[in-house]
Design a protein around this nucleic acid. Structure first.
Lengths: 212, 212
DNA sequence: ACATTACGCTACTCCTAAGTAGCGTAATGC
DNA sequence: GCATTACGCTACTTAGGAGTAGCGTAATGT
């Protein structure tokens, strides 16, 4: 029966695995479907069964790749990458237009969907430290960084007086915070007017721009 | 056996109910314990069993008064009343001090606890329309109203130029929104410096006050 | 004392959703 | 064809938490 001395059966040849290959393309489908659900529902109602049903995959297949629901969600967040603006800072000629460009970014399906996702993740983050860290690192921090850099640039270009630099750190939080809060209290999509008003009446106003 | 024609047995005399009276004092205990839990945990983890255990009451007793968990939570919210500032608008001599007075209000245990509760309710509101309405009516709207009135008063007194009145509606949302968002991303209590910075660097700045 | 109502307790039922077991089948490389 | 790995399917187990049933006991008014 060769119980003790036999060499292990070869499972690879030349370092390449044998047998049917892992279907990487379906990973992308699963992850993006997960993001869809995060945009639609509260976290507790995003179920593995639903992900399986929508993707046409078997639930067991999901668990073969991600050990838990949290793991799947974390992978889904990571798969979305960073906001593209962090690599290509918008430069529309004025701080106001740059801020609007960030708001109007199509990343994650546009402002409304993006904020819906963020909202779901924020409340889920309360029950999972790890998830909280990922959300912070992948979404929140990048956005703060983007806004911070836009403000800094506007200071360097003289569009904003340098004495107001102390206000930048708080102001970098204003848009995400107000958007998320707004969405929490109305079913309807957040209208663009709202973003414009936050930019004009809060952010730019606090940076010394004259009344619109 | 008197099955058909008997009068119903009297359950009241002179309109007063018979028997052991409903223990109203324990209602208050149950409701405040519920609020405690809302301040500590995410909504899904606030359980009827825990409320029962903490109050020393039986779970069946809870269900004799409130039909569902949502009902209990709604009653708990209502039992907290309104922010006291809506009846006695602070008047500390400047808009800045008035805003700080609202932030420093001991209502619901002070700023940190109050925001914790709000945070729990905001995410719970996503799954229950009724709860969302109650939170809006009992907490969110009153606060917006308070801030709006403070701003209006500052305009009337000349502390703030009347041309900036258009900014008031958005600004009335800034403190609650930023506080909730801040709490979502840090375990630690929100430091008072944060509130001060929001007031000075965002709100007052947007209302034309000179750099601090 | 007696009827009446409130409360506590134990032990349920019910449901939902996470996560698993086992087997049959499909796709690949040799 | 053969070994090997991936996938789908059905059917489970588990776990937690909402909500209930039934009974015994405590508190009240008459």
């Amino acid at each position: 029966m060769n119980t003790s001395a036999g060499l292990p059966a070869p499972t690879k040849i030349d370092g390449l695995p044998l047998g049917r290959p892992h279907d990487r393309s379906s990973d992308a489908l699963i992850l993006s479907t997960t993001v869809d659900l995060l945009a639609e529902r509260a976290y507790e109602r995003v179920t593995m069964d639903e992900v399986a049903a929508r993707t046409g995959k078997a639930k067991t297949t999901l668990y073969r790749r991600w050990a838990t629901k949290d793991d799947l969600v974390i992978a889904a967040i990571r798969s979305a990458g960073h906001p593209p603006e962090i690599d290509h800072l918008p430069d529309r000629g004025s701080l106001r237009l740059d801020l609007l460009a960030v708001v109007d970014s199509p990343w994650l399906g546009g402002a409304t969907r993006r904020i819906s996702i963020l909202r779901t993740l924020i409340s889920a983050a309360r029950s999972s430290e790890e998830l909280a860290d990922v959300v912070r690192a992948e979404i929140t921090e990048p956005y703060i960084e983007i806004y911070r850099r836009l403000f800094d640039r506007a200071i360097d270009s003289g569009e904003i007086p340098r004495e107001l630099a102390a206000r930048v750190p708080v102001l970098a939080d204003v848009l995400p915070a107000m958007s998320a809060h707004r969405l929490s209290f109305s079913r309807e999509p957040v209208e663009r007017d709202f973003f414009v008003s936050v930019i004009d009446d809060v952010i730019l106003a606090a940076l010394g721009h004259s009344p619109r």
